[in-house]
Simulated scan of single mutants.
Amino acid sequence: MFRSNLPAFEAGASVIRTYEAVLIPGLLQIPAYTAAIFRGGQVLDSAVVDRHVEARSARQKILDREDPPSLVALIDEAALLKVIGGQAVMRAQLGHLVEMAARSNITIQVVPNAVGAHSALTAGPFVILDFPGDPSLVYMATATDSLWREQPEEYQRYSLILTHVSTSALSPDESTKYMIAMMDRQTR
Rank of each mutant, 00 (worst) to 15 (best):
K82S: 13
A141T: 13
E77M: 07
F38W: 12
A8E: 13
S166G: 11
L147V: 14
A102V: 01
R39F: 03
A36L: 03
T144M: 14
L80Q: 08
P25F: 09
S70N: 05
E54N: 13
F9R: 06
S175W: 10
N105K: 10
Q109H: 10
P69F: 08
V115P: 07
S4K: 14
Q60I: 01
L74D: 04
E153R: 13
E150G: 09
D76W: 04
H52W: 13
N5K: 15
A143Y: 11
H96M: 06
L160Y: 00
V127F: 08
V48Y: 09
A11F: 03
S171R: 03
V98T: 04
E153S: 09
F38H: 14
S46T: 12
Q151N: 12
N105L: 01
V48S: 13
T34Y: 05
L162I: 04
D134S: 12
Q60H: 05
A114S: 14
G41T: 10
R59N: 09
E153I: 01
D50E: 15
L63N: 10
R39Q: 11
Y158N: 00
P135D: 11
Y19Q: 04
A143Q: 12
G12A: 12
D173P: 00
L6S: 00
D67V: 14
P7S: 06
Q151L: 05
I108A: 05
G124I: 00
M90R: 02
R65L: 02
E54V: 08
V49R: 02
G116V: 01
A78S: 15
A141S: 14
S166L: 06
L170M: 13
L94Y: 08
Y158L: 00
S119Y: 01
L63W: 09
R185I: 06
Q42D: 11
I37C: 08
R103C: 09
V43I: 15
S146P: 07
I84H: 07
G86N: 04
A36H: 03
N105Y: 07
L97Q: 03
E150D: 12
L121V: 02
A47I: 05
M90P: 07
F38V: 10
A55N: 13
R149M: 15
M179S: 02
I161L: 00
E54G: 10
V115K: 01
V89K: 06
R51K: 15
R17G: 02
